[in-house]
């Protein structure tokens, strides 16, 4: 329970920063989908779980890790596109809350399917990357790599959205969903592509997470609420906001967990989130419409 400004405190802060990269990547995919399609995938973390299982089995089936990771990214991208095609598209014109709830049904479905197919045991790739030791602090390489790759993934998305034709179209449709179809843009196709990219980002996150965490069917419930909180705190659909919010929330978790029990770090983060939303309902960086 002692909370001093010593070397361990610094270690917690840096670990918080490393966690933030991963959370920012997770929030980015959800924000992209919300910004473009105006839908919240409650089952987003479960897609990550699917990717983690996919990578786990591909790796244990003999693929090198990088190939397995690529396989995971493609797998989740396809899952994202399928989710949009089968589940979201039929309810696109109904009240928004239906779209949120329908993906909640998918959450149950994926969790149960994973339990049945893979069992409830914790699974682990068994890759040990060791850790970087500076003075008395130690940071595991898997976290550092996750942070770097998360940043690289975000940069790649930014380049895609700003430099390519289809990226420009996606940015345009997120600004006005009604007018773009009149300009001759096939919004159905763009939504599908966006869903696939959102899924791909979840797949990338999955590839980074299998190196750090054990896989089990309920892992989505551990990360899901955290991701939603970050997205809402940053302003749903606001990618920069989500990025900053990820750093704020992860500091609460990392420092809180190092000073108290793990749950209290999370609990304080959720409390902070609720209070922050009451003060700025549109999120820290959102603009009200």
């Amino acid at each position: 329970m002692d909370c001093q400004l010593d070397i361990f405190f610094l270690e917690a802060v840096v670990n918080g920063l490393l966690l933030a990269g991963l959370l920012a990547l997770l929030a980015l995919g959800l924000n992209l989908i919300f910004g473009v399609i105006d839908v919240v995938w409650i089952c987003y973390a479960e897609l990550v779980m699917v990717g983690m299982y996919g990578i786990n089995y591909a790796y244990k089936g003999g693929m090198p890790f990088l190939v397995a990771a690529l396989f995971g990214i493609v797998l989740v991208a396809i899952a994202g596109a399928l989710l949009h095609f089968l589940v979201i598209r039929p309810v696109l014109e109904t009240p928004p809350i239906n779209q949120l709830l329908v993906t909640g049904g998918v959450l149950f479905l994926l969790q149960a399917a994973a339990t049945m197919a893979f069992g409830i045991e914790f699974k682990n790739l068994g890759i040990r990357l060791g850790s970087l030791n500076i003075i008395d602090m130690s940071f595991s390489w898997s976290r550092i790599l996750a942070f770097l790759f998360a940043l690289a993934g975000m940069l790649a998305l930014w380049l895609f959205l700003s430099r390519t034709f289809i990226g420009t179209a996606i940015r345009a449709i997120s600004q006005d969903r009604q007018i773009m179809p009149l300009m001759g843009v096939d919004s159905r196709k763009l939504y599908l592509v966006t869903s696939a990219i959102g899924g791909g980002l979840a797949g990338l996150a999955a590839a980074l997470m299998v190196l750090q965490y054990d896989i089990y069917p309920q892992i989505g419930l551990q990360f899901g609420p955290l991701i939603f909180m970050i997205c809402v705190l940053g302003g749903l659909g606001n990618m920069i906001g989500g990025f900053v919010a990820a750093f704020i929330i992860s500091q609460f978790i990392a420092v809180g967990s190092s000073c108290f029990h793990t749950e209290w770090g999370y609990a304080v983060a959720f409390l902070f989130f609720m209070v922050a939303i009451f003060i700025r309902p549109q999120g820290l960086f959102g603009s009200r419409t």
């Binding site: 049904g105 479905l109 339990t115 049945m116 069917p217």
Partner: peptide, 15 residues
Amino acid sequence: ALDQLIYGLLLVLFI
């Protein structure tokens, strides 16, 4: 977990 699976599927269909 089968009941949860069917449950989830039905919910999607219901909504």
